[in-house]
Design a protein around this nucleic acid. Structure first.
Lengths: 337, 337
DNA sequence: CTGTTAGCGCTTTCAG
DNA sequence: CTGAAAGCGCTAACAG
């Protein structure tokens, strides 16, 4: 930068100002400086810039189960939206453990991200989120909601889950099992609530024995499903509460030699790119994941631009994608509700 | 840090040294400093540290198609291995475009990552990789290989692809189509070479009309497959050269009303987590993706620790996973080769 | 074994 | 419209 200044015959102050548009500079001077920047091949030093107090133009993304199919779309959408606005992404996996999450978030804050997008673990409220509040680091919550005055984006859970269950009930199922997610997650609780609501609408009594705890993950869901199937009076239909668990459920079903939908019906939360193509074709609730991800960074950037903004809680509507795993029997048009 | 120094009654130099273990410090002093660090709740300022010349403890990951199922495992494995060694990940999508990639890489270098893992696009050699060489920023290439003296990790492609085709030939297929990846990628070229080798072994003449160009992506693969199927004397068996394209191929097959393996056989490069569970059960070559990702950061860290190391080119062996989409007809044990 | 001090490359008052 | 200079919080000679 000193080099540029010398080359252009100005002070580094002026170079800084033309670089950042921080104050008015004479047109000709600007031109000279720009040329000098070209000629010297100057590259701004983001570290120094950050140390001197400028924003880092980076945002942190702390999320659990990076490899989970249902998180991947978020990451991708968030990266795209961030890149669009010239922000760089720092990525970390929280593994949905409050301590790891806190460490991750602290690390991100130490690295002076301008703000971060967080899929809060159960317990985040007392750890990571509290910490962020203390640091007054802007954050937007992704996927899971917290009863806080903080920006948050996710999907609706209760009513869609209810619809899934209601559909099953209408098909005559009375024993409908739920493979539920990690306890303490708003998504988990809301989907359970939706499950119960759907039961009610179908005039089915709630049986706690029909809820299996799949911890939002593949392997626990497999084990939980097996237990469910081994019970007395096992379910004739299943709702898997997210995509990772759907894989686990299918696994358990296969081990028991059960075919979908002939032997057991299956519906799920979260869609797969390939759901249309492979059998059984899953009837699911599809989240607008890319929109949610994009929206998260938009909220964050809005807050960075104007810190005083009122916190927003955004619920996006998912889509009921009716396919064949519910066992409808009729040729359900794909993509229809 | 000044606060810690005062609290402990030492200079900030000493604080720095106990923090980094950069030189010997009296045991008692160390204890006092540590206590002061506790008491003050001191958090190291990584930006300042970096500006003063210390490494940033961060690595950049520049990769294409973040949402692609076959890249996700890499990201996840790399994040895990990086976190394991207390490195933070900066993530960016190159979209397999040399210019975007160069920009991405420059950005990462400006942010002073200690090194980076790059899945080089076609053209990377003349842009991003050349740039990195000029900056002498350590890099390890992931997935795709380049004829350069640089660390690189990926899988074997030629022989496995040949095996897939050979298997098809043994089943009696004479018209075997290939949905090939993005041109200019080593993986693409090697898999094409393997395809031809497999043809030879099956004593089948190579017909260029049977190669469709799927650009390594879902949608182009779909279109390419459709063209392939519409040709005169269409293929009776298909090899999809990566997982994203497998989805595209399935899509095209579905549009034509073709069932796998009854109407057409299908084998593919890359496995899916759910391949065992959904029909058709895909016969594939499964890469050890997590190992590859972990290995990439290990190579990088080794080089950071000892810059003089000779560059390594590591080829990991994939697994032939024999399932049903090849149309074998016999009950192939899953996971067997 | 410990402290003093000169930067790292930038932003931003303050002064002109 | 422009410049001088004081940091930002740390690391690493250099000096003792």
């Amino acid at each position: 930068m000193a080099e540029v200044a010398k080359e252009a015959g100005v002070s580094i102050t002026t170079v800084s100002h033309v670089l950042n548009g921080t104050r008015h500079v004479n047109e000709k001077t600007v031109a000279r400086v720009r040329k000098a920047i070209e000629d010297t091949g100057y590259q701004p030093h983001s570290i120094a810039r950050a140390l001197a107090g400028a924003p880092t133009q980076s945002i942190g993304l702390a999320i659990s189960g990076i490899a989970n199919p249902y998180m991947v779309d978020f990451i991708s959408a968030i990266e795209a939206e961030a890149a669009e606005h010239d922000y760089t992404l720092l990525l970390g996996d929280t593994h949905d453990e409050p301590n790891k999450e806190l460490q991750m978030v602290q690390e991100l804050v130490r690295r002076r991200v301008d703000g971060l997008v967080l899929a809060p673990s159960p317990g985040a409220m007392d750890q990571a989120v509290r910490y962020l509040a203390e640091q007054s680091t802007p954050v937007v919550l992704l996927d899971r909601f917290l009863p806080l005055d903080v920006d948050q984006v996710g999907t609706e859970n209760e009513e869609p889950a209810a619809q899934l269950v209601e559909h099953l009930a209408q098909l005559g199922h009375r024993r409908i099992g739920l493979v539920a997610g990690l306890e303490g997650l708003s998504t988990t609780e809301e989907r359970i609530a939706g499950y119960r609501k759907g039961l009610q609408r179908g005039d089915i009594e709630f049986d706690p024995a029909l809820i299996a705890h799949g911890a939002s993950q593949h392997e626990p869901a497999r084990a939980a499903t097996k237990r469910l199937l081994e019970g007395a009076d096992p379910p004739t239909a299943l709702l898997a509460a997210n995509s990772a668990m759907t894989i686990g459920v299918m696994h358990a079903l296969r081990e028991r030699g059960l075919e979908v939908p002939d032997d057991i019906a299956l519906v799920a939360f979260d869609d797969f790119e390939w759901s249309d193509l492979f059998r059984p074709r899953l009837t699911v609730i599809a989240q607008p994941t890319r929109v949610i991800g994009a929206r998260a960074v938009q909220l964050l950037l809005a807050r960075l631009a104007e810190p005083g903004l009122a916190a927003q809680s955004v619920r996006l509507k998912p889509t009921f994608v009716h396919r064949e795993s519910c066992g409808c029997g009729h040729d359900a048009p794909s993509g229809a509700g």
